[in-house]
């Protein structure tokens, strides 16, 4: 009879159950177990523990997790918001000019040929109506409002599209 000498222990049985032994060791251990059936209940217990590990239920993610992932994914796909920045900066620049231009005129005229510190400089005459009705300003404002309207429309359409894709 072939001698199947083994330093048998739980670790070796676990490796056997996990299929981690070489083919030769597998066969040797199988033969050993045939000759030493007192180890079979231990192997069966290990098998039961393995099945328990294999059958633990999966954890459920929070409610609406998949929708949340798709929403985050859609956000990464939409165009960057930086294009809105230059519109805001443009508006800021126009309003800054409205304030700084008359102020500049006021300061430069105030010091022309006057006795400094005695006479208050005259307020420069600014034709506000003329400025507001100037064709360049009107076209500029029309342009800015058109861009803002288009951006708003694009945002609404993109939101609608991403929601529709998630529902389908």
């Amino acid at each position: 009879m072939e001698d199947h000498t083994f330093d048998i222990n739980d670790d070796l049985l676990w490796d056997y159950a996990d299929g981690m032994l070489s083919e030769a060791d597998n066969q040797r251990l199988a033969a050993y177990l045939d000759e030493h059936p007192e180890w079979v209940p231990r192997l069966q217990a290990i098998g039961a523990e393995r099945r328990l590990l294999q059958s633990t239920p999966l954890e459920a993610p929070p409610a609406g997790f998949a929708v949340q992932v798709m929403k985050a994914w859609a956000e990464t796909q939409s165009p960057p918001v930086e294009s809105a920045d230059w519109v805001i900066r443009g508006i800021g620049l126009v309003f800054s000019l409205f304030i700084l231009l008359p102020l500049g005129l006021f300061i430069s005229k105030g010091f022309q040929g006057k006795d400094a510190g005695v006479t208050l400089p005259e307020m420069p005459k600014v034709d506000w109506i003329g400025l507001l009705t100037h064709p360049i300003l009107q076209y500029g404002l029309y342009f800015v409002f058109t861009i803002l309207a288009l951006r708003l429309l694009s945002a609404v359409l993109s939101q609608y599209k991403s929601m529709h894709q998630m529902v389908v």
């Binding site: 993610p61 997790f65 992932v69 994914w73 894709q165």
Partner: peptide, 18 residues
Amino acid sequence: QQQAYALLVERYEHYVFT
């Protein structure tokens, strides 16, 4: 196809979360 992404999430969300 966004629908394909959504199906991949549905298929693997439990495994990934666990």
